[in-house]
Design a protein around this nucleic acid. Structure first.
Lengths: 202, 202
DNA sequence: CGATTCGTTGACGAAGTTCAAGCTGCGTGG
DNA sequence: CCACGCAGCTTGAACTTCGTCAACGAATCG
């Protein structure tokens, strides 16, 4: 999959953009000429701090939108997997812009609140369980799926270390809530108890 | 300050709503006929879980908007202090709706990402320091301000206990980064070190 | 002035991080 | 094909941080 450029600044005539895993889509501080919708693959947004830490603000799956901030990028966007993204605003169709932007913003806002709900949890088990449920819902319709991101990505998103993420996933396996084949292929064995652990419910 | 009703369902002819401290503005699950802008005071949105835990998703200050979800409320909104809120969509002015909604959504989205950035931090000191800086920026122009919310609100927002919040604030005082007069009146003594502790900077 | 709520503090145990080592899967080159 | 190296993941041991339980002060409201 070819990667035309690292960092997208001129999107006037571009409609579908291909990125390889770990390529940057734009950088924090860039001018923001457009917003994006994920077509294929998975994208993350993150901030790099001066102490070297990376904080992931969200993962975006096909159908999700990202990069809606006005004027200047407040975070970096990178491809988690090989990915294709589009710029809906550049795709003509005349007058549909206003409502498109509005519905995109609504979806992005709803997703952001779900992220806050995951991160506000107190223990690693709650956070990881909620994260697995959210990922499973995004990535596959079934209870069997593959994590598109590394343990390091999970850790930088959940505010934990990769060690704690790994150990916590191990505990969930020991408790027969999930099972793994390799590090990334996951099957949910007991979704009810997993939801209870995540503190979900009405 | 009078409180006309607990839970607002019919906002057709209402433009300015007054709430007392801890009053509910709407409930999770309610039909969502309108969104709100804070005029005076502070508002919080939260979710109550079946295990009794409360998770605060955000605090909203004068000028902030909240309750933009479509159709049904996904969280409860409550007044943190006595508060006045308006429904911008009901205030006539004919054709300004579309761009108003859009700019409101953009501000809400930006605020949500800042919340994610606070909650994604790893240690209590980082989270509390970032929270103090964010609150100071919202609440007063200066380095001296009062927390509008209780320790319990802070804890339920940051994913910590009130004990850890209290102890962490105590540590910041010991380190001469802030000083307190009473539990709520706070003065920032060394904003540079406080920002460094929060992991801020370009 | 008592009652209640909120905030602080101490002691202890559980949970998470750090440091270190080792394992696994995979690509590369011999 | 196997040997090697590398990157990502897991695991162990020691240490630090945070939550829990309990008690105690401070502010508020009747």
């Amino acid at each position: 999959m070819p990667n035309p450029s690292i960092g997208v600044h001129d999107t006037r005539n571009i409609q579908a953009l291909h990125f390889c895993r770990d390529d940057a889509i734009y950088f924090e501080g860039d001018f923001a000429p457009a917003w994006f919708a994920v077509s294929e693959g998975v994208v993350r947004t993150c901030r790099y701090k001066e102490n070297g830490n990376r904080q992931i603000l969200g993962f975006y799956y096909p159908g999700d939108v990202f990069g809606l901030e006005p004027t200047a990028r407040r975070e970096t966007a990178e491809a988690v997997t090989d990915a294709v993204v589009r710029c809906p605003a550049q795709e003509g169709h005349g007058q549909r812009d206003a409502s498109d932007v509005e519905s995109a913003l609504r979806r992005a806002l709803g997703a952001a609140y779900e992220n806050i709900a995951i991160l506000g949890r107190r223990t690693a088990q709650e956070r990881v369980a909620a994260f697995i449920l959210a990922t499973a819902a995004e990535v596959g319709r079934s209870e069997e799926f593959s994590f598109p991101m590394s343990r390091s990505d999970m850790a930088d998103y959940l505010g934990l270390t990769i060690h704690t993420v790994s150990r916590t996933i191990g505990q969930l396996c020991d408790q027969q809530l999930i099972s793994l084949r390799g590090a990334r292929h996951c099957r949910i064995l007991d979704i009810a108890r997993l939801k209870a652990l995540a503190g979900e419910g009405h």
